[in-house]
Design a protein around this nucleic acid. Structure first.
Length: 111
DNA sequence: TTGCTGACCGACG
DNA sequence: CCGTCGGCCAGCA
C-alpha cells in the first residue's frame, strides 16, 4: 500500500503483454534496485494473497524456470496459463525464453 | 526490538 | 561445474 516498491512491481507486472514473460531481476532492475529481486517475488506473493489481477505467471526467474509455480492455486496453473498464451514449456522451463522475454526497462521508464 | 525467512541474482573460490 | 555467501526490503514471531 504505502510501499511504493510493491505498487511499482504491480504496475510493471500488469503491463506485461500477453504471450510475453519477464524476470524478477528485470523488474527489480527497472525499479532501479536489481538487487531486490527477492522483493519482486515477495510482492507477487503478497499480490496473490490480495487476489489482484496480476499475470504473475508471466514472471519467472532468470533461468526461465517456473520457480513460482508452487505458489499458485495448483503447481500446474502457471504452466497451463503460459501455454495458453502460446509459450512453450518443457520440464517447468520456458523454451525460447529469450525470444519471449519482455524487458520492462526497455518499455517502461520509472520516474 | 531483534532475528529469520523468502516466487532472486551475481560474485567468489 | 558446483556450493556458498552477501545484498536488497518487507512481514512475522
Amino acid at each position: 500500500m504505502d510501499s511504493n516498491f510493491f505498487q511499482s512491481v504491480y504496475e510493471i507486472v500488469k503491463l506485461i503483454p500477453q504471450g510475453r514473460i519477464t524476470t524478477y531481476g528485470a523488474i527489480a532492475n527497472a525499479l532501479g534496485t536489481k538487487k531486490s529481486a527477492r522483493m519482486v517475488g515477495w510482492a507477487l506473493n503478497a499480490s496473490n494473497a490480495q487476489k489482484l489481477n496480476l499475470p504473475a505467471h508471466r514472471v519467472v526467474n532468470r533461468n526461465g524456470l517456473l520457480s513460482g509455480k508452487h505458489h499458485f492455486d495448483t503447481p500446474s496453473t502457471m504452466q497451463l496459463l503460459l501455454e495458453s498464451e502460446g509459450i512453450q514449456i518443457k520440464k517447468h522451463q520456458i523454451q525460447d525464453f529469450t525470444k519471449y522475454f519482455w524487458d520492462p526497462i526497455k518499455e517502461i521508464e520509472i520516474k
